[in-house]
Structures are given as structure tokens and as C-alpha cells.
Nucleic acid binder design. Structure first.
Lengths: 205, 205
DNA sequence: GGGTTTTTCTAACTATTGTTCGGTTTTGCT
DNA sequence: AGCAAAACCGAACAATAGTTAGAAAAACCC
């Protein structure tokens, strides 16, 4: 009764990693316990020693991906100096989000692809984790606007939806090796901050 | 042997619409023929009178959604005057894309959610439809840059990926009634063209 | 080594899956 | 009306789904 977790935790992570890959490739219903087990090097029945149902398994995958993203973002933002500009904070947020998505690619893709198909009870539960993440972004944007770094008339809600959509989509196309994470993050930041148009070119709206 | 299609086409569309909704909500494997049939007001066996397999059904859903998007975009761009600016063309493209996604919401969401989980043969086939759509966007951006309307150093590949990611994501959050399609499109266009930052504020990159 | 706990396997159970097919109803036409 | 085609149903098929339970193996501790 001391701590029999250390050994089990390894297997549990191996199962979770396998599940993330299979859920990502086959969706919630298409990912069968037998295929997940094979990917993890076990037989189907053995999965139930670690997770007591398929639903509990997908919940664990969803939560781990989201928690990793939240944690990375909080750490990165906390490491910034207090006098960091809104642009700097936004750039760090971009970089952190993309880096997290790439590092946990299996979980990120599994989450974004499977989220809409999971049983409602699981989705509602998981949504509680997602909300604070959205709030972090909202805070970054509104603070920068209050400081006068962003246009006063900029629609920050739309901006946030644009940013999160674009960033989450990176998981679908980013291939390590061709472009670096920093290139993507700073490229995105440049567009969102300064736009594509040449300054002072045409009229707006 | 004249034209027995007219009547059948109605039922076929009814089946297709139902399939789009069910695929969107349950994913490729999770959408069962029986549930799709019920949504369409039939029994499972009757589906096979209209589509000879589940794979053919999902293929039809994917293709219809994509074709509608391509067609709408071509029509909208062709309707523009030849002297339209790059900004105007981009704004029209934004508006058209969002409008199409909202109008065909079931198909759009089904497509974007299910695309990654569909059998490989179907995905490869469908990809042929997707490529020309990406080319249309590429052309809009490069033309505007050649004309000197966009920054010469702007990374248009990243811009295109950002735009498509953000636009496709709208299908997930857009709720008719609260915000208008035009508001979203022009809001997105404003950010992508001019950025969030106040002009001449800080230094870039 | 023996004894215990942790981990995995095997074999099964029921429910449900995509699909088929012969029969039945509906429709369109004259 | 009557006939033929079109559209649908009902019941079944083999395959596979999630899950369970008990036996077997592996790992651990003394």
C-alpha cells in the first residue's frame, strides 16, 4: 500500500499515447479498443486495467492535451518581464501555442478532431478546461488595447477567434523540418499585428 | 428509360442532408447507416437504393460541400470588376467563404471534422477537389502582392494558411443571429490587411 | 525459494455494425 | 382500371464492437 504507481504509470502513459494516435486517425467511434491496444502493445482486455472504459480513455486524452497547453502558456507568460509590450506578449503566446501543438501533436490533433464527436457528457466536462484558455487570450488582447498598443476600434473578439482558428489549424499542416516553429509564430504575429497591406496604402473599410 | 431522376433526386438530397448532419455530429465511424436513415425518414436498407455504400455516401457529402465552396468563390470573384483592388478581392473572398460555410453549415462542418478520419482512398480522391480551392486563394494573394498592394516581404504562404485556418474555424463558432456574416468577413479582412497594432506604433519583428 | 500483488491474456458475452435480398408498397403512365 | 418502374421495408447475414471475468504470467518483497 505504499506507492505502486511508478511502474503502472509507464504503461498508462504508453496506453494514453497510443490512444491519442488512434483517436486522431480514426475518430472517436472509429478508434476501437482492439486497435488502441495493439498500438500500445497489449491485448484489448488489458486496457481495462488502466482505464475502466473507452469514455474514460478519451477523456484522459482530451484533458492531457488541454492541460499541457494551459500549463505551457502560463509558464511562458509568467516568464515575461512585467514591462513586456503587448506585441511581445502576443508573440510569445503565438510561439508557445504552436510549440505546444507541435510537441503534443498527437494529442492536439486528436483533441481538435474528436472534440465534436465525443459523447456530450464528456464534451461538457472537457469544456471547463477550455474556457480558461480562451480567457488567457482575451486578457492578452484587451490589455494591449487598453495600453494603447492596439487600435481602439479593433474587434478583439473576432481577433481572438481568428487567432485561435489559425493556430489550431497549424496542427493539420505543420511538418517539422521544413519550417521552424518560430518562423510560423513570428510570421503569424507579423500578419495579425501589422497586416498584409503596405502601410498608408489604401483606405480602410 | 426517359428521365427517372427528377423524383429520385429529391430523396437523394434528403438522404445527403441527413448524412451531413449525422456525420458532423458523430464522425465517420460513429455515424451509423441506421441513424442516418432515421434522420432522413427511412429505414437503413433503403439507403442502399440511393447510395451503394457508406463510403459512397460520405464521398458525396465531402464533394458537395467542396463544390459548393468552389462554385460560390468563382462566381463571386468573376462578378468583380477588373479594376478591383487586392483588398477588395480579398474581402469578397472572405465574405464568400464565410457565407458558404454558414449556408452549407452541415456539409462544411461534416467535411472539416470528418476529413481526417475517412478511409485513405476517399481522402485522396477528395483532395483533388481541395487543391484548386487553395490555388484560388494563392492567386488572390500573389496578385495583390505583385501589384504592390501587399508588403513585398509578407509571407503569403503563411498568410494563406492563417486565413484558411481562421475561416474554416468560423463554422465551429458562428451562430446566426448574433453577428452578421458581413461583420465577420470584414472584421477578419481588416485584421489581415491592416493588423491590430496602431499604425507607426512600435518596431516590427 | 515462497507468497503477494500487479499486470496481462484468453475466451467469451451481448449489442450493433454495414450490407444483402426478396417482398411490399408507392408512383407514374396510359 | 391496370401495368411497370421506382422506392421502400423487414428480416436476416457475418463481422466486429465494448466489455467482463477468471486464469496465467511478471514483477516485487522477504
Amino acid at each position: 500500500m505504499t506507492k505502486p504507481l511508478a511502474k503502472s504509470a509507464i504503461s498508462q502513459k504508453r496506453v494514453l499515447d497510443a490512444a491519442a494516435r488512434i483517436f486522431r486517425d480514426y475518430g472517436y467511434a472509429g478508434a476501437t479498443m482492439r486497435v488502441i491496444a495493439e498500438e500500445a502493445g497489449l491485448k484489448a482486455g488489458s486496457l481495462y486495467y488502466h482505464y475502466k472504459s473507452k469514455d474514460e480513455l478519451i477523456s484522459a486524452v482530451l484533458d492531457l492535451g488541454m492541460n499541457a497547453a494551459i500549463e505551457a502558456m502560463q509558464t511562458a507568460l509568467a516568464a515575461l518581464p512585467a514591462e513586456a509590450t503587448g506585441r511581445q506578449r502576443l508573440e510569445v503566446a503565438f510561439r508557445t501555442h504552436v510549440a505546444t501543438i507541435i510537441a503534443n501533436g498527437d494529442y492536439s490533433l486528436a483533441t481538435s478532431r474528436v472534440y465534436g464527436q465525443v459523447p456530450e457528457a464528456i464534451r461538457i466536462q472537457h469544456q471547463k478546461l477550455r474556457d480558461p484558455y480562451g480567457l488567457m487570450w482575451r486578457e492578452i488582447l484587451t490589455t494591449a488595447q487598453k495600453r494603447g498598443e492596439f487600435r481602439a476600434d479593433a474587434n478583439l473578439t473576432l481577433a481572438r477567434l481568428l487567432i485561435l482558428g489559425a493556430l489550431n489549424w497549424t496542427a493539420e499542416w505543420f511538418k517539422p523540418g521544413s519550417r521552424s516553429i518560430d518562423d510560423v509564430a513570428s510570421g503569424f504575429a507579423a500578419i495579425v499585428m501589422d497586416g498584409l497591406a503596405v502601410p498608408g496604402g489604401g483606405s480602410s473599410g
